[in-house]
Design a protein around this nucleic acid. Structure first.
Length: 562
RNA sequence: CGGGGUGUAGCGCAGCUUGGUUAGCGCGCAGCGUUCGGGACGCUGAGGUCCCGGGUUCAAAUCCCGGCACCCCGACCA
């Protein structure tokens, strides 16, 4: 492609609304342009990269036995009402109404459509397994679109759906997708980890998130510095081996419980400061609702409650942490001053970590008051012991006991064993050899293709601009003609043209800067655009019979004979 | 949804507090000339519903009211 004809305008200044490097550089380098909040136009360079990534995904899906289809973006709302997800998604869905007043939505995902499709066409055990995928635009009216392509309202997604006879078949399909994802992200050059995700759904569905490691990521994940344990922060747990549920003997040396006045200090840090204690010496006491009754969760003051862990601890009862509305509804409960000895609590769940201290500072169950010397087994008791805290860096691995680390990542893929939730709701059944009907076992598997592109930029750029891995680069080689002045200029141009033609004849994708602009502009643009290899054909080199090659990512230079 | 902020040429911004000729600057764009290996320089020029609507005023980019859009922070951890 000749740059003189390419639809491209690079920007010297950073766009004012870009917060992260991927957004800033993709706009500056002329890959994308914002149309509306979280919605972008893809310009020629950007669209080429998007298609490269798409093609990698397609090849790996095909190799894994999935078949490509294309499902509608405009989907009847009725389908979503049948699965119950109309309400579950709520305002996250873009909605529209046709001239007959029928409701539609723009597809945020496609379980409903694909399940209905398979239910219509297939009904026998002989038909399964089958795995269908598409690469198509998805729409989610995010609360706060941000970070350019990383959280858009319109984004390109590969979504695959597997249909199997039974749990064993599902595991096989799931494994094939897991392996394919590993290959996709490896080919894209990303540094990533497959982390255990919160398996919330009943039936203990297995689920993994693929996280591209990036400081700008919006998701925390935990990984072991020694073994291969990795989990997102909701699913992560600490080592259990040191747990023992006996209450330690009460230390007779601890003075009796004593109330202290802590006016206007509902927070841990404020109280700790006032009393000259470390946050870890305070007992944090969180109110939650279990099947309509009040529960309390206890963790050390320097730790946070993992809501999912708490939910698991009280299961099968349903729990929900108290929000502002709940405190308004229960005015006697002194938000910010709750202690574990609160009389109205039905159940007290505690993290084993609270045995670390024998005398706690905690809420007095009276506004503007806390207590000192609250002792476990003397002043309060615990009904359920469970791992409740959110894992932090330095905790020990539940698998090998070594140190865990918490890092940030961009969720670029997710594989999930769905089970029969949608096949039952949407009547996707098959008849087995004995003539009996069963719901199909489903799995779903997503890759955020446009997000992968942004994640790659986050990992592969510098202050000069983009630096694409070869597999996804818009072009293989960037030929930069620098004719200089004088008679040899025409000769340099002829040489550059010849190289451009020869490379293309060899099947290499070439971006050729034939523009009549100063060398500085060409070099700066080449670095900004980020094609992996730059080939400078200039007066200096041509005179010596060489072209200069620069590897964009490393800056390494060498010379090639013309 | 709560709080804060912004909206002026394709991009980045100044001007607004304290209303007053023809609304500026840099980049980019067009023409001419000089330059020509890391975002060159000079001259000339084009390009504006100052977000939209209403109001105050002799006079509004500027003040007031309403709306829209966008950005940032937060949105159960007491």
């Amino acid at each position: 492609m000749r740059m003189s004809a390419l639809f491209l305008r690079t920007l010297r200044d950073d766009p004012a609304d870009a917060e992260v490097d991927s957004h800033r550089l993709l706009v500056r380098a002329g890959y994308i342009r914002r149309v509306s909040a979280g919605i972008y136009s893809w310009l020629p360079l950007g669209y080429r990269v998007l298609r490269k990534i798409e093609q990698i995904v397609r090849e790996e899906m095909d190799a894994a036995g999935a078949q490509e289809v294309l499902l509608p973006i405009a989907q009847p709302l009725e389908l979503w009402q049948r699965s119950g997800r109309d309400k579950a998604y709520g305002p996250l869905m873009f909605r529209l109404v046709d001239r007959k007043e029928t409701g539609y939505c723009l597809s945020p995902t496609a379980e409903e459509v694909v399940t209905t499709l398979v239910a219509q066409e297939y009904g026998s055990y002989r038909d399964l397994p089958v795995n269908l995928y598409q690469i198509n635009w998805k729409y989610r009216d995010e609360l706060r679109p941000r970070f350019g392509l990383l959280r858009g309202r319109e984004f390109l997604m590969k979504d695959a759906y597997s249909f199997d006879l039974d749990a064993g078949g599902l595991r096989t399909s799931y494994r094939a997708m897991y392996d394919a994802y590993t290959r996709v992200f490896t080919r894209c050059g990303l540094t990533f980890r497959a982390v255990e995700a919160q398996s919330g759904e009943m039936g203990g569905s297995e689920s993994r998130e693929f996280m591209a490691v990036a400081a700008v990521g919006e998701d925390d994940f935990v990984w072991c510095t020694n073994c291969d344990y990795a989990a997102n922060v909701e699913a992560a747990r600490r080592d259990h081996s040191w747990h023992h549920t006996e209450v330690p003997a009460v230390d007779p040396a601890v003075p009796p419980i004593e109330e202290v006045h802590t006016p206007g200090l509902p927070g841990i840090t404020g109280v700790a400061e006032l009393l000259g204690a470390a946050p870890g010496e305070l007992l944090k006491c969180i109110a939650f609702d279990v099947d309509g009754e009040l529960g309390l969760a206890l963790v050390p003051g320097d730790r946070e409650v993992n809501e999912y862990a708490l939910a698991a601890a009280v299961a099968p009862k349903k729990m929900r942490l108290y929000g502002d509305d709940d405190f308004v509804a229960h005015p006697v409960l002194p938000k910010g001053y709750i202690g574990p000895h609160y009389a109205g609590a039905t159940v007290v769940v505690a993290d084993p970590g609270i045995r670390a201290h024998t005398a706690w500072i905690t809420g007095a169950n009276r506004v503007d008051h806390h207590v000192r010397n609250a002792v476990l087994g003397r002043d309060f008791s615990v009904d359920v012991w469970a791992d409740l805290v959110t894992v932090v860096t330095g905790d020990t691995c539940p698998r090998c006991g070594h140190t865990l680390s918490v890092d940030r990542g961009i969720e670029v893929g997710h594989v999930f064993q769905l089970g029969t939730k949608y096949s039952e709701a949407l009547d996707a059944r098959y008849t087995d050899e004995k003539g009996e009907q069963h719901p199909m076992m489903m799995g779903c598997y997503g890759i955020g293709v446009s997000r992968v592109l942004a994640a790659i930029v986050e990992e592969f750029h510098d202050e000069q601009g983009l630096a694409w891995p070869a597999a996804v680069a818009p072009y293989d080689v960037h030929v930069v003609a620098v004719p200089g002045r004088g008679d040899q200029g025409a000769e340099v141009v002829r040489t550059a043209e010849r190289i451009y033609d020869e490379l293309r004849a060899r099947g290499i994708e070439v971006l050729y800067d034939d523009r009549d602009v100063s060398p500085g502009v060409k070099f700066a643009d080449a670095d900004l655009v980020g094609v992996p290899v730059q080939l400078v054909v200039g007066a200096k080199g041509t005179a010596r019979g060489v072209a200069e090659r620069k590897v964009r990512a490393t800056g390494a230079r060498d010379e090639l004979p013309l």
